[in-house]
Write a protein that binds this DNA or RNA. Structure first.
Length: 946
RNA sequence: GGGGAUGUGGCGGAAUGGCAGACGCGCACGGUUCAGGUCCGUGUGUCCGAAAGGACGUGGGGGUUCAACUCCCCCCAUCCCCA
């Protein structure tokens, strides 16, 4: 491929070669930078510019998911989305909009820290070097970013605002009546004024200072909790649920993870469950992503029901209170707190053999079962394929409606951490319960009439309730459908004090602290009582201190009893601090956890708006302009957000949560951060392995008759990611060197729809190169360098084609269908190539339409065509509607679905005229018979049924 | 196990229910060239045929329709997510 750039003796001196492309590209990148071509004017502040050609124009905010700058640099897959947004943004700019497009870096994160642990190099050093490398690689691609707006999450100017937002969250509580966050000051005022009752009913004034603080802290959206967390001794840190694999090990390092009660920062994202769910409806996002978010939030409505036992009530959660009459047994998780109390000394009279697990006493049975369950992971426990296991506790509960005795089992298919850790089993209408009931020979009572032809087993469909009446206690569900039966059952439970309607969530509060070094410090100190105190805004930023040792203290991987020790805690001189927080100088202890990597990406899109603002994270006027709602009820947010589908849940959910808090507190006018989301596909690659299974360099493999060889040896092909270890990496740098950035851009955009994953094929890049060469040659004489353009107007056919292409390309650009837009430009170019000279009235629009994809060569040609400035703000061509309607139309004529002839008629020909011409054209195929039916589709075709 | 996505030439892909395969790669032939891993042109779904032409053809099976890659039902395969 490098030969393409090699000078050969007979290459015409003015041919568009890789060398010339490189020269042009370098020059235009310098020009754009020097002239600040892609600076987007703000309405107010230092980045305002009333003289800018797009000042006050309709805005468009285009956003990429910003990258983590890894040490490996970019491969050809990484910039796919960036090139896509660049083409879109360049088009929109030419179409008259004021376009904001910037690029920053999500620069806190584990790899740099681990590298630091291994080498002693400060993470900042590594990260900043990586950022520089990324910036160089991205600049080489000619991306039209407003470089003044580039931010990095590790900059103190940036993370001071991350800390500021944390304080907003910390200083807020969720008012469930108003359905929004409010400052805790207002909560305290309500307690003081008596409008709000304290948890135990005592007047606020009678509470001690510590008690008041505890009450307030219980309301905060950011709070310290003693909840069970995933403690990983081998890594020395706690992990979020999503960082733990299905088999209970750390995603990184594969160390065992233990559930431990540890003091951790949490964010009360569950308070926003309803809004995070409902507001999905306002978003222009791919449906699969919305669905994943809905599933992740996992809202289920049902009821809590209390089953009375001699040892106190067992509270269960069920989504099907309507099937209460079918509840024939209870199941508790083996870890459930009531289990020990429920177990009697001996098996009750009449206990069946299968219920005992072969043990002499209930206690022995339960203990043996618990031991076995503890050795399994949650996934194993819930696996549907496994035979259901469990054991009878020996205890009974009273059915809340009928009063019948209900046996209580422990079984590991019920998880302690989910719902209440206890279920009422309804084997007739739940598959898992049905499987369990079959194993343990438990009664199965149908309470829903199955539909016709139902094969048996658990019936989960709808139908009228049956066997569901207890008139003596005033509950009759018979005949009711699902929704009515549910409502009536809940009403009865509530009226009789046996339970209440309830909503549960799969979504948990967000574990927000990490025992690491390379993250944002918390703006929190602790006083002598151990209470967490927010630092005042003026003390921000809390800068990350230097340390000698970047690693958290790690432990033996299996040492479940160990405790986290953070890197920051070892800087005692930083941790111990004297501050005056209003009541005179006092000693405080700093929080030594840091924030998780998600923090910066929760709000970075807001900082692009006003990156130099020192008094606010963004001026409200700038936020309103770029992200505010476009109409009443509109959620606002960025106009386009492009990134990989792997961030479907976490990043997008966390960012939405933070944005909503800021909205509630009046800091932003949009209630969603990203109005439209677009998931770009992945560029994948083939990798080849030799007979030992070792990867061989993919570029050295040749194909012979559908088999692949590396030298003499046959190798096996596999398809997947591009990666160093697979020896199949292709970098944008190589492509730019061999063909130029414009060719690379055109190739990436033309190889398929942006949202679809597809394989990389270096050999095919040459097609885009030839295309740009043809465009170049249409304008510039390769031998002399002279313009080949004529001022004679183009012929009718060429002009019609041009306007058809303009019309199509505009539609494709708006719809992010770049591959078909490029195909149309190639068609136009190929048509122009056949002409003896290129008419200027075609060359100019062609160059302008090419500009979003191949901006450098387009700028160069635009200049050669005699224009002084950049085309970045030139008007994108507009189609002349008169040239879009053809004078004549060719109709294919089908007989019984097969094309048997063609007619050419005037475009405005009447239907009768078309019909008779068509019948005449296919008279031979009809063989003199009268057609049964003739369908004329205006402008399309004629279909004859013989 | 549940959910989602995808299935069209040798390859990437194109087609408001209206002529399947635009555009590109590859391949073949021709031109340019001392030469060609350059550039240009022509051709290229499969089968039959010298050609004209014909038959078949969008993972498989059924259905709706004058007309289905497109809409509906069943099945198969691959990939992704969740459990």
């Amino acid at each position: 491929m490098s030969e393409a750039a090699a000078p050969a003796t007979d290459i015409p001196p003015y041919r568009y070669t890789a060398a010339l492309a490189g020269d042009i590209e370098q020059r235009w990148q310098d020009t754009w930078q020097r002239e600040g071509t892609f600076h987007a004017p703000n309405p107010t502040g230092p980045l305002a510019d009333p003289t800018h050609p797009r000042a006050g124009a309709e805005k468009l905010y285009v956003l990429d998911m910003f990258p983590y700058p890894s040490g490996a640099g970019l491969h050809v897959g990484h910039p796919l989305g960036y090139i896509g947004t660049d083409c879109f943004a360049r088009y929109q700019r030419m179409a008259g909009r004021n376009v904001l497009h910037a690029m920053g870096f999500d620069a806190f994160g584990l790899p740099a820290e681990q590298y630091a642990v291994q080498t002693g190099t400060h993470p900042r050093t590594t990260t900043e070097a990586n950022i520089e490398r990324y910036k160089e690689q991205l600049r080489r691609l000619g991306l039209a970013h407003d470089e003044r707006r580039s931010v990095s999450t590790i900059d103190t100017d940036f993370y001071r605002w991350t800390q500021w937002i944390f304080l907003q969250v910390f200083n807020s509580w969720y008012d469930t009546d108003a359905k929004r966050a409010r400052p805790v000051a207002e909560l305290i005022a309500e307690f003081e004024g008596g409008q709000r009752a304290t948890p135990d009913g005592r007047p606020w004034a009678e509470l001690t200072v510590a008690e008041r603080r505890a009450v307030v802290d219980d309301h905060r959206l950011a709070y310290v909790s003693q909840a069970p967390v995933n403690w990983c001794p081998g890594l020395g840190t706690v992990l979020a649920n999503e960082e733990v694999t299905a088999d209970g090990r750390s995603e990184r390092g594969n160390f065992p993870v233990f559930k431990r009660n540890l003091k951790q920062w949490m964010m009360r994202i569950t308070a926003y469950g309803d809004r995070l769910l409902e507001d999905l409806d306002t978003l222009d996002w791919p449906e699969p992503i919305k669905l994943q978010q809905r599933n992740w939030i996992g809202r289920s409505t049902g009821a809590h029901i209390d089953f009375v036992t001699g040892q106190g009530p067992v509270r269960v959660f069920t989504t099907r209170p309507d099937t209460i009459f079918g509840a024939t047994y209870l199941v508790l998780a083996p870890e459930h707190e009531l289990v020990d109390a429920l177990v009697p000394a001996a098996w009750p009279e009449g206990t069946r053999e299968v219920w005992t697990g072969g043990h002499a006493s209930p206690r022995a049975a339960v203990e043996a079962y618990r031991k076995a369950a503890a050795a399994k992971t949650d996934v194993e426990r819930q696996s549907d394929t496994r035979e259901k296991t469990g054991v009878f506790t020996g205890g009974y509960a009273e059915h809340p409606v009928t009063g019948a005795p209900v046996p209580i089992f422990v079984a590991d298919y019920v998880l302690a951490g989910y719902g209440t850790g206890a279920i009422m089993a309804v084997p007739a209408e739940d598959e898992r319960d049905h499987a369990f009931a079959e194993v343990f020979e438990l009664p199965i009572v149908r309470t829903v009439q199955p539909s016709e032809g139902f094969a048996g087993g658990a019936y989960t469909g709808d139908g009228p309730r049956i066997n569901s009446a207890a008139p003596e206690v005033g509950l009759d569900l018979d005949g009711l459908g699902l929704a009515d039966a549910k409502a009536r059952a809940i009403a009865w439970l509530e009226a009789n004090g046996r339970g209440a309607g309830a909503v549960t969530w799969r979504l948990r509060d967000w574990l927000f602290s990490r025992q690491r070094y390379w993250g944002e410090p918390f703006p929190i100190v602790y006083d002598e009582t151990g209470a967490a105190i927010a630092l005042p805004e003026e003390m921000l930023p809390v800068e990350l201190p230097e340390v000698d040792d970047f690693s958290p203290k790690t432990f033996d991987a299996d040492d479940a009893a160990s405790n986290p020790e953070t890197p920051l805690s070892r800087r005692r001189d930083w941790v111990e601090v004297e501050l005056d927080l209003g009541d005179g100088p006092k000693r405080y202890t700093r929080e030594t956890n840091v924030m998780p990597q998600w923090a910066g990406s929760c709000w970075y899109e807001l900082r692009y708006l006003d990156p130099t603002n020192t008094t606010r994270f963004a001026d409200p006027e700038n936020e309103r302009y770029w992200m505010g709602p476009r109409a009443a009820g509109d959620c606002g947010g960025t106009d386009l957000y492009v990134g990989g589908a792997e961030h479907a849940v976490l990043h997008l959910l966390y960012a939405r949560f933070w944005h909503k808090v800021l909205f509630d507190l009046g800091h932003v006018s949009s209630f969603e951060p990203f109005r439209k989301l677009f998931n770009q596909g992945m560029i994948q690659a083939y990798a080849f392995r030799d007979s030992r299974g070792a990867p061989v360099p993919a570029e050295e493999v040749v194909e012979v008759d559908g088999r692949w060889f590396h030298g003499e040896a046959e190798v096996a092909r596999e398809y997947g990611k591009m990666g160093k270890s697979l020896k199949n990496v292709v970098t944008p740098d190589e492509m730019c060197a061999a063909y130029g950035a414009d060719t690379f851009r055109v190739y990436e955009m033309s190889m398929g729809p942006l949202e679809v994953s597809r394989p990389w094929d270096t050999r095919a890049v040459v097609g885009s190169y030839r295309f740009l060469q043809r465009v170049w040659r249409a304008v510039v004489d390769e031998e002399t360098g002279e313009l080949r353009v004529t001022d004679e107007p183009a012929d009718e056919a060429t002009r019609r084609l041009l306007h058809k292409v303009i019309d199509g390309v505009r539609g494709d650009m708006e719809g992010i269908r770049f591959n078909t837009a490029i195909a149309k430009l190639i068609e136009l170019t190929n048509a122009v190539t056949r002409l003896p000279a290129t008419p200027r009235d075609v060359a100019e629009p062609l160059v302008l339409m090419l500009a979003p994809f191949a901006p450098h060569v387009a700028e160069e040609l635009w200049r050669k065509l005699g224009h002084a400035g950049s085309l970045a703000y030139a008007d994108f061509p507009t189609a002349d509607p008169r040239l879009l309607v053809a004078e004549t139309v060719t109709y294919p004529v089908q007989v019984n679905g097969k094309v048997r002839g063609r007619i050419e008629v005037a475009a405005d020909a009447a239907e009768d005229e078309v019909r008779s011409a068509a019948l005449e054209a296919v008279a031979g195929s009809l063989g003199g018979k009268e057609p049964r039916k003739v369908i004329v589709v205006k402008g399309r075709m004629v279909s004859v049924v013989a």
